[in-house]
Amino acid sequence: MKILVVDDETDIRVLFEQRFRKEIKSGEIEFAFAYSGDDALGYLGKLMHEAVLILSDINMPGMSGLELLKKIKQKFENPPPVVMMITAYGDSENYKQAMDLGADDFLTKPLDFNLLKEKLKSLS
């Protein structure tokens, strides 16, 4: 499974690589990282077919996660990637907006990696 992680915090990469150490090693999951909405769209434009799941932070400078979600859902329809939104503000307004825009799931920071792993298992 290929997963694109979008977050403006660069250390998120190290964290994911450590957390999914075994999965990466066994080739079960492959990660790509983007540090802004524009970055993410650029990656998807080139290598769309490779990203099956997108994990995006909502709170980013420039293009926010919600705008990115909207654009992904507009541009990439076939096959539609699974998009999970992550935010530090687990409020109902963000949740509702994300769901309206077609988010497949909604997670709050700090990320519960065990929960995320379970969700990924059910996807694959």
Partner: peptide
């Protein structure tokens, strides 16, 4: 503060 704290917690768990 939340962001770095998340990292502290996550990396400690890892």
């Amino acid at each position: 503060i939340q962001n770095p704290l998340n990292f502290v917690n996550n990396f400690a768990e890892v």
